[in-house]
């Protein structure tokens, strides 16, 4: 079974962020990047399926040069090869544009299954995978927790998360695209052997074609406006804790 995993590189969680001089995105100069968390689980799910059923795992990533780092890490964890769609300014594209870039890069791959994370931690639109499925004309399902290949090999059964602790099983024919939820398994670490092997694995570079005007554009980014008056309690930890205990006792009265 051939599985393609689409991954994105995003700013490291808990980074200190600064808005750039255009006011339209972050100053990326001082940021470090890592694999988008749900995408890491998509990769893990793909590697587990490969271990069970055999086949190939191909990593797909659109982004600037720095994205090769994330692809190398995926190769070190056990992916077989990578496809790098070279694109500088993804933030200026809309999802439909990015999904078309990704779909075009794998048009000849004839994958059985395409996995990706359910949303990115930077833009959080949660739709690249679903739109890719539309562009490729294959069925999809979102917020997936478990994947089971049916014995015949031509169909999958997946566990999809619903609201408030409910789930649902959905069955569909392959090829299909699934968007994966975070936290559904333990993530593996790359072994030393894996890191060594990764250096020899193929990274195919694809130049991003010209894209038509985006239908949706991000015009400006800014710190969120506070909706609530927050009373900040300062001082040393001991002082702050004592003041907060007073609040609990005399203001909100729970002790």
């Amino acid at each position: 079974m051939k599985i393609i995993v689409a991954v994105k590189q995003v700013p490291v969680r808990d980074s200190l962020i600064h808005i750039d001089s255009s006011g339209r995105w972050l100053d990326e100069g001082e940021l470090s990047f890592e694999i988008n968390e749900p995408d890491a689980y998509a990769l893990e799910a793909a590697l587990l399926l490969k271990e069970k059923h055999g086949g190939e795992v191909v990593v797909l990533c659109a982004g600037p040069e720095r994205a090769t780092q994330t692809m190398r890490e995926a190769l070190a964890k056990g992916a077989d090869r990578a496809i790098h769609v070279e694109a500088e300014d993804l933030v200026r594209m809309d999802t439909f544009g990015v999904a078309r870039l990704l779909a075009a890069a794998i048009a000849d791959e004839k994958a059985d299954l395409i996995l990706t994370g359910l949303q990115s931690e930077d833009l959080g639109l949660g739709q690249t995978g679903v739109v890719m499925a539309e562009v490729l004309g294959i069925p999809h399902a979102t917020i997936i927790m478990e994947i089971e290949l049916e014995e015949s090999g031509g169909r999958i059964r997946v566990k999809r998360e619903l609201e408030e602790g409910w789930f649902q099983t959905v069955e569909m024919p392959l090829p299909a695209l699934l968007t994966i939820q975070s936290g559904i398994s333990k993530l593996r670490y790359a072994t030393l052997m894996g890191i060594k092997k990764a250096k020899t694995k193929e990274v195919r570079r694809v130049a991003a074609g010209a894209m038509p005007e985006a239908t949706v554009s991000l015009e400006r980014v800014y710190p969120p406006q506070k909706k609530k008056e927050t009373r900040m309690i300062g001082g040393t930890p001991t002082e702050a804790a004592a003041a907060l205990a007073d609040v609990l006792q005399f203001e909100v009265r729970v002790i």
Binding site: E121, D122, G124, A214, T215, S217, V221, P223
Partner: peptide, 13 residues
């Protein structure tokens, strides 16, 4: 954006 750390204005074009 960024899980609530930032707000963004979007226009439809």
């Amino acid at each position: 954006l960024l899980q609530g750390k930032l707000s963004g204005d979007y226009l439809h074009r």
